[in-house]
Design a protein around this nucleic acid. Structure first.
Lengths: 340, 340
DNA sequence: TAGGTTTCTTGAACCGGTTTAAGCCAACGG
DNA sequence: CCGTTGGCTTAAACCGGTTCAAGAAACCTA
């Protein structure tokens, strides 16, 4: 069994110095075509792959990006966004020979420690900031430690980091228009954690568009968990002026809402229309199938990774707007029955 | 802004050579108590953290473990196991100053490439092998490349790697006994991908225990996706000798089964009892709430990570048996109504 | 053809740890 | 009193890349 070839082996084989091999490898100018060719040939013949470790040491780079996810253990699994997002991240990273470092932490304190540790140990070159809070302390934390990041969504205050955003306004407009055209007049909104950036914008948009369309709106606040989605639904359905349609700020809550409606013996979707947001695939496997707003998690993954790589490697990156969220109409929204 | 302190700074501060600092840091013998103390003090004062990069280069270690998940894009999100599993992994890794490298890949070929790349680039010291196949080519692949791993479940053939296992037999026995006691006689099993190790053992156990209890069994085969879970359910419910209970090999398929039953207008759980496996939290938020077998993904995460670290750091590790899966009875299983 | 450029190439230093042969010194035994 | 022994400590080599000042070679131009 032969040991892994090193840059010295390649240099010897090609009859040049190892410095030159390095220059050639990195496509730097000032290497003659002839030399470059001999080096490439030698590298190919030996099957040389430059050592990431050696490179990391010399360059003070980790060639990896970090994703720290904080999840209350009970909400862990109900995240349709996550897996597809990571798949998108991966598709870009792999092409750059880089790697994703993932951390799942239970609470705020562990989260902070994790960011500190990953930066202090130079384990990553930058972070993907998902689940953005309206005023997110991670931004200052990371910036203060000299780290880099990209935010999914645009944070409230000043941020030194590029932001990837998606227009949700037009999607919400389509959704409410759809409901209004079906004949709904009382459309409730089950909002998510109001500390979260996307929860708040979704709620604001809902209010705005509902007003414009002349819809009556009741709002229930939650933390995005299906548990609170259930409670909110029970409260809404107990009202004398029960809404004929409920829009949930994410899909898992919408599933929980469907369960509550079944439990109460409502005839779905006739007696209650339900819509989610984030376009999870599971929505195709519930009854009735769930109307929702697409979110293309893989698209978020690709765009945010690309932006972060640009930032890390070129020192700068621009904000990236993703295409607007599209309405996915399925069976859970229909014209209200006349009983109401 | 001062640059990060290095081992040389610590050595100077403590008045010793850097070699000695290294010995002290790693708790090696042959360092006097006095020296050790001065070194610790100096390190603490300067806030020194040894550079992972330098260490990795010298030790040819990555100080990270790898998890490669292959998912067909459509099944991506329906994985309740994943997030909690990673949280368990993380809790052990963090305590060892190590890190998880995650890759989500769409197909077999990319998967193989990913393993090759991570090993060739020394990005990880070992792999966590989830979703174990009955005869899993990854074992030979990794062993052949000189990598290390731990399997979740015991593979068919010979494996040079330690295995973490959980007794599912007794859980399945509890579940079927529970159904039998409720008065069910025809209990169907919707099996998962038969290439997968756990799908097969679940099916075998079901058959075995059902026989013993004198239950009639029909089996439908699927790939574990909710989509095929739906189809299987439709086929089962169309039979003249329709089963009064269906046991699904995982929870997402059970959810899909519930949806189909609703769609057909069945009264749940009276006309059809439904059970899942893997104890996902979402089971509490469907109607009726889902009876299932607990699986404690975090426990899998902790055990497999610990075993892999033992293997990587001490060169050997033993198999780890987890406690048996427990039955979680919720509302979806009840006595069959007499109509059948 | 000499002198001045420009283009390539080299060698050595550097990144920040780990390893180990050799040196030092005090204690110990004969 | 001296040779040994054993415990600490050091200095230098090493891991495998990148960088850059300086030298060599090729190319112009007058």
């Amino acid at each position: 069994m032969m040991r892994k070839p090193t840059i010295d082996d390649v240099a010897r084989e090609a009859g040049v110095s190892k410095g030159l091999v390095s220059l050639a490898l990195n496509g730097r100018p000032g290497v003659s075509a002839a030399a470059r060719e001999r080096i490439d040939a030698a590298a190919a013949e030996l099957g040389w792959r430059p050592s990431t470790n050696a490179r990391s040491l010399a360059m003070k780079r980790a060639y990896s990006l970090g994703l720290v996810v904080r999840r209350d253990p009970s909400t862990f699994e109900a995240d349709p966004f996550f897996a597809a997002y990571v798949a998108g991240v991966e598709s870009v990273l792999a092409a750059h020979g880089q790697v994703l470092v993932l951390s799942v932490v239970p609470d705020h304190e562990t989260e902070t420690q994790t960011y500190r540790r990953l930066i202090a140990d130079q384990r990553v070159d930058g972070f993907l900031l998902t689940d953005l809070l309206e005023s997110d302390p991670r931004i200052e934390l990371i910036a203060g430690l000299g780290g880099r990041a990209v935010t999914l969504g645009r944070p409230q205050g000043e941020s030194p980091f590029p932001a990837v955003t998606r227009d949700y306004a037009s999607g919400i407009e389509s959704l409410l228009t759809h409901l209004a055209e079906l004949g709904h007049r009382r459309v409730a909104h089950v909002a998510g954690d109001e500390n979260m950036q996307h929860a708040r914008t979704r709620l604001e948009r809902h209010r705005e568009v509902a007003d414009r369309l002349g819809l009556e709106t009741v709002v229930e606040h939650t933390d995005f968990s299906p548990e609170q989605g259930m409670d909110a639904t029970r409260r809404l359905l107990a009202r004398p002026d029960r809404p004929t349609a409920i829009v949930y700020a994410n899909d898992p809550m919408a599933f929980a809402g469907i369960a509550v409606a079944h439990e109460l013996g409502l005839d779905l979707p006739g007696e209650l229309s339900i819509a989610g947001m984030d376009g999870s695939d599971m929505g195709r496997f519930v009854y009735p199938t769930l109307t929702t707003l697409d979110n293309d998690p893989a698209g978020w993954g690709r765009a945010s990774t690309q932006a972060l790589l640009d930032l890390v490697e070129r020192g700068q990156a621009a904000d990236v707007p993703l295409p607007p969220a599209a309405l996915i109409v399925r069976a859970s929204t229909t014209a209200p029955t006349a009983t109401a």
